[in-house]
Design a protein around this nucleic acid. Structure first.
Lengths: 336, 336
DNA sequence: TTGTAAGCGTTATCAT
DNA sequence: ATGATAACGCTTACAA
């Protein structure tokens, strides 16, 4: 059973294929009655214009691509919801690809999407990504791209960011104000802006409160990373009084290991995470964490991308910084 | 900056486009030297064959589509990993769309994917889905489809399933053997096979142990559903001694509400969930739950789909049933 | 208002 | 071993 084409429909109705085409893109003059007739018959025969052929000639697809490092943390799925909400409203379909923290896969994903003529891309870089030149080349080819959250500084594209510096400062300050000293920061992937900014905020909180610089441990974003670091600390006997982790996953990883080794949270070790995960309010003890406006990030990125698509060629890269919230929970309450 | 095409490359080298085409699909006779020359020049100029044009003429894309209801629970992301693993190995790209529990969106997603000539589909139905006829039509059009987990009985397609009956039986039996009686089942969306089977398993456990039929409450799969049902039970004063929920989300929703109202888990109410979520081992108390072989489900579905694509047209629908595990944790330990 | 025909970037068929 | 040329299904000047 072959797909029914514009030709079949035209023949069936005794009109030309251009007339059928016009009926489906009613910007051209066409007699309303013929159009209705054509659309009705199309419905009847189950004809839908082949988007592949359409893309080939129009060089656009009304599809946009989203590339994320992973779906495991609830952060990306939620952003995605925001993107879809805006895009579906405007008649776009959203194709999603995950790069599983591999730069090669990220590149392949982007290539697939570009080759398939998506009208634009929304990208969050994988931690491993060091190859910005690739994206720069893409930009010179006038392919609309919006980056969010995981990006790098010196690229002239639109970005949707979170004020990581400010909220890391707040989070650290919260620990300091609770009376904790000797706070350790488990930092994220070092080449990402967000990691740097969270680290800066951590440091700034110490400066502001005239404390000695806090200890920083290169950690990573995954639960395993947090587990690894916690084990190392226990082996060395360097048990921190408080921890500010670059994200919830690593915070939870560390927390679990400490708990398994008999340390009480927050009595022995206070912990604060970052990027509210689904887990934060359900684990024991509940985890204090910075909450990002996930859905809003997605919506904003989508809106920015749509603008960029509309103004094809001429556009000024914008950086939009969104606000968050510190959710204080049990893991950082000083019981003293 | 226009995309570079096969023509540009052919002209540049003074050969015909057919020769270039052959160089990229080396099934035809072509002199090795010319092929190498062409590939080298292509690399140099950054030429990649346009997959859109290729799809148009070949009517296939080396893309496969995956449609899932959501990404919020960790179940689907994990299945996805399994799918990608197999597909990338075979040179396929995986396009993912989420239908956000809306049947309209699910249909639109499938249409987009089909129109874009994916070579096959892996689908998990949304709870709301009642429209099986649509998929039946798709199957008569010889579009390879594999369903997993959320499917319906009477459709002649390949399926990757979990023995929900058996594991629901085990889970309920576990509660019974712990000495609980008057167990309540929070059931899932009623038209899905998996809901029916979990319900059957629940009932069978009672029959087997010669107990009165347990109470069944129509609930749903979301945290909110569990919360709603728990509130209703509290209002009516009908506090169950034990709960077997159709999935972890609803179990956790119910558990949280009961906890907020001062009930102790498992002392007052024991709870068992289904479909191991990330949360199960991190919440307090830790949740007893049936674990599904998520990654394996994805791999199996992918393998089945590849077979079906290879044997285009002639194939026998297979149903593969995978095994799981009951992870017993605090929420169901009878302290007596 | 409608039809004719060129062309989007490939692959496939037929020559040469 | 390579080159012309006709498809694939559609949009869009240009003609009628």
């Amino acid at each position: 059973m072959k797909h029914i084409t514009i030709k079949d429909l035209a023949k069936e109705l005794g009109v030309s294929i251009s007339t059928v085409s016009r009926a489906f893109n009613n910007k051209y003059d066409i007699k309303p009655e013929t159009r209705d007739l054509i659309l009705k018959k199309a419905e009847e025969l189950g004809y839908r214009p082949n988007p592949i052929a359409r893309k080939l000639i129009q060089q656009r697809s009304y599809n946009i691509g989203v590339v994320v490092p992973e779906f495991e943390n609830s952060f990306f799925p939620k952003v995605l919801m925001g993107v879809q909400e805006v895009m579906h409203d405007k008649g776009y379909q959203v194709l999603v690809m995950q790069s599983n923290y591999s730069w090669e896969m990220e590149k392949k994903n982007v290539e697939t999407l570009v080759d398939n003529m998506v009208d634009g891309l929304i990208v969050s870089l994988t931690s491993e990504n060091q190859n910005i030149d690739y994206y720069k080349k893409l930009l010179t080819q006038n392919i609309p791209i919006v980056f969010f959250n995981r990006t790098v500084e010196d690229i002239a594209a639109s970005k949707v960011l979170f004020d990581d510096f400010k909220w890391a400062l707040f989070a650290t300050e919260h620990l300091i104000l609770q009376g904790y000293q000797h706070i350790v920061h488990l930092s994220g992937a070092p080449h990402l802006t967000l990691s740097k900014n969270r680290l800066k905020g951590f440091k700034q909180a110490h400066t502001k409160h005239r404390l000695e610089p806090g200890k920083v441990i290169q950690c990573g974003f995954r639960t395993e990373d947090g587990e690894r670091v916690a084990k190392e600390l226990i082996e060395k006997g360097e048990i921190p009084r408080a921890i500010f982790a670059a994200n919830d996953s690593s915070a939870i990883g560390a927390m679990n290991v400490f708990k398994q080794h008999g340390y009480k949270i927050p009595q022995d070790i206070a912990i604060v995470g970052f990027t509210e995960s689904n887990l934060a309010k359900h684990i024991y003890p509940t985890l204090t964490s910075v909450e990002q406006p996930t859905q809003d990030i997605g919506q904003t990125a989508a809106t920015l991308l749509l603008e960029q698509i509309a103004n094809k060629g001429v556009f000024v890269p914008q950086t939009i910084v969104l606000n968050g919230r510190l959710n204080v929970r049990e893991s950082s309450m000083n019981p003293q």
